[in-house]
Design a binder for these strands. Structure first.
Lengths: 140, 140
DNA sequence: AAAAATTTGTTATATTATAACACTATACTC
DNA sequence: GAGTATAGTGTTATAATATAACAAATTTTT
């Protein structure tokens, strides 16, 4: 049996389930208030589950937002190698899956030749939907 | 006269000065306690200065650390286009200035063809100095 | 079944960041 | 240079994010 498929604990399942239901990244305290009915009462219970889920790659942390999002890349078990696009307007986050970019990042060495274990890349811009809305608004 | 060289306010100078003196990134409350003798008394005064300094590109925010570091790229006035390497062990942060990587990031488009205004890339690994120390330790 | 490792539940507290408001200084423009 | 717009200051209070510490329960390993 695959080591990575070891089953999740109760709290880990509850937290993961809530994150996966959301299209947008969610905040820790929003998770907390939404899962209190399921018996999770205090911040440490949420943060522990988050830590574990990040460690096994099921979710990622969006650093610039202090928020958490489900991994969209199937069978991803590589935490800490993440690329996101973030809309400055609606704050929606998409995980980017671009082989060429991944290769560039994987192969990157600094001046010392240091190899890196991981990376986090966040692109900022205006998503298509928000851009269209802006154009609509200028028409009036 | 260059628009970008407009002079900084008193608090902005104090905060920038302190950040530039430090090799490692500094935390907001560490800045606060270190500049209290200069007349900065409360968090908002620090955060306002930080916001402005980030906006004009004099400093950058290290998202994964909630810390702030002076820009090392001369005449940088482009905020929100940053690449750092971060040592997992000593937490030292270096700003990376790699033209090829910059080009890759600048030219990146997502599937929709969206152009991005900015990006933040953080590489994680073990710096040369920490790696050497680890090797030293295994010898004993 | 005993030992080890992980997860849980809980209280308290640390850390990071912003809201709101009255006031002052600087720059802009006529 | 008087008036006004813009940016910055000082302050109090509080919001938002995250962890320490410890005892108990559960699961995994030997």
């Amino acid at each position: 049996m695959d080591k990575k498929s070891k089953s999740l604990s109760k709290n880990q399942k509850i937290v993961l389930d809530f994150i996966q239901k959301n299209k947008k990244p969610v905040k820790a305290y929003s998770i907390l208030s939404n899962v209190q009915k399921k018996g999770i009462n205090a911040p440490p219970q949420v943060y522990r589950a988050l830590d574990k889920l990040i460690e096994i790659g099921k979710i990622h942390r969006v650093e610039s937002q202090n928020s958490f999002v489900a991994c969209k890349i199937s069978n991803c078990n590589t935490p800490h190698k993440t690329v996101f696009s973030i809309c400055n307007s609606c704050e929606i986050v998409s995980e980017i899956n671009d082989p060429k970019l991944f290769k560039n990042l994987k192969d990157f060495r600094d001046k010392d030749g240091t190899v890196f274990d991981g990376y986090n890349l966040e692109f900022f811009g205006t998503c298509k939907s928000c851009k269209n809305k802006q154009i609509e608004n200028t028409k009036h």
